[in-house]
Design a protein around this nucleic acid. Structure first.
Lengths: 152, 152
DNA sequence: TTGATTTCCTAGTAAAATAATAGTAAAATA
DNA sequence: TATTTTACTATTATTTTACTAGGAAATCAA
C-alpha cells in the first residue's frame, strides 16, 4: 500500500509553487529542475492538478503555473486525491461506496471505512502552507525520492 | 494507494480461522471454498502468515491450520503487515527509516511519518477477535471482493 | 505399506499498473 | 516571426499483481 510517484511528485510540485511564489507564473521547467524530476513526466502530473483546478496555468512565453488560491486553503488530501485519483485503501469505498455489490453483507467494510477515515482525516488536517513552512525551515528543500525508477 | 488481495485475503483467512475454530486444524481447502478464493493462491498467502508465526500448521491427513494464539492477541496491523510486507505509505519509512539517504534533509518526512502513524495506529487498534465478532454478527460471513481479477 | 490427504516449495505467466519518454500542436509574447 | 511555454496523445520498458501449475514431503487411516 504505497503512494506512487504521482502523488509524491504532485505534493512536491505544490510545495515548490508555494515556496517559490512571486505572483508571476512559474514555468514547469524551473520546478522540474529544482525537484530533479523529468519535465515530461511532470507535465502529466501537473495536468491532473489543472483538471482538479488546484493550479492555474498561463501559456506562452513567460507562462507557467500558479496556485489557484492561497496555500492555507489546500490540504495534503486535496493534492494527493487529485494526483492519485483516490486515497481510499480499498476499491469498495472509492467515492460513493456503491462500488461493491456485497457492501450490505460485508462484515469487514466497517473496518475499512474506519481506516479510510483516519487516512483522509489526517491528510485533510495538514495544509499546504504548513508543508511549505516546513520546507522553508529546512535549509534546502529536499523531498524523499526513493521508489522512483530513475534513482535506482 | 490500495491494499492488495494478499492483505485482504490474509485478513479474511484469519477471520475464517477464528470464526470456524474448533480446536482441530482447519484444512486450507475448506477456507478457500468458504471464502471463494483459489486454493493455490491461498497457499502462498498463508505461507506468509506461517513465516510471521501468526498461524500454526499441521501436515498430512486431517491436517490444516490453526491460530497460533487467542484471537484477542492479534491486531489487524499484525496480519496486514505480515501479508503486505509493510504498511507504510512510502518506501522511505519502511521498518527502520534508514532507507532514504536524504532523510535528514527531507522536509516532507515528518508529514509521511505522521500518516504512517495514524495508519498503523488504527490498524493496531482493531483486534482479530473484534473482526471475528462482526463477522459472526453478520448472518453470513462475506467480505469485499472487488479488485480481484477473478471476479471481473 | 499403500493410498489419500494435506502442507510446503518453486517456477511460470498473463494482465495491469507504474514511471516514464517522445512528438507535436496551440497559445502567447517579445 | 522566432521563442517559449502549456496541452495533448501515443508509445514503451519495467515492475507488480494475481494468479496457475507441478511435485515433494509429511501424516494418518485402512
Amino acid at each position: 500500500m504505497k503512494i506512487s510517484t504521482k502523488g509524491r511528485y504532485a505534493l512536491r510540485t505544490m510545495i515548490d509553487l508555494t515556496v517559490n511564489d512571486t505572483g508571476t507564473p512559474i514555468p514547469l521547467k524551473d520546478i522540474a529542475t529544482r525537484q530533479n524530476i523529468s519535465l515530461k513526466y511532470m507535465e502529466q502530473i501537473i495536468s491532473l492538478l489543472i483538471k482538479s483546478k488546484l493550479v492555474k496555468s498561463v501559456r506562452g512565453n513567460n507562462g507557467g503555473y500558479l496556485l489557484a488560491k492561497p496555500s492555507m486553503q489546500y490540504t495534503a488530501g486535496d493534492i494527493l486525491r487529485a494526483a492519485e485519483g483516490d486515497m481510499s485503501p480499498i476499491a469498495c469505498i472509492e467515492r460513493d461506496h456503491s462500488n461493491c455489490k456485497r457492501a450490505d453483507y460485508c462484515s469487514v467494510l466497517p473496518f475499512w471505512l474506519g481506516l479510510n477515515k483516519v487516512i483522509n482525516g489526517y491528510l485533510d488536517s495538514v495544509t499546504l502552507s504548513e508543508l511549505a513552512r516546513q520546507a522553508r525551515e529546512t535549509d534546502k528543500f529536499f523531498a524523499c525520492e526513493e521508489q522512483s525508477r530513475k534513482n535506482k
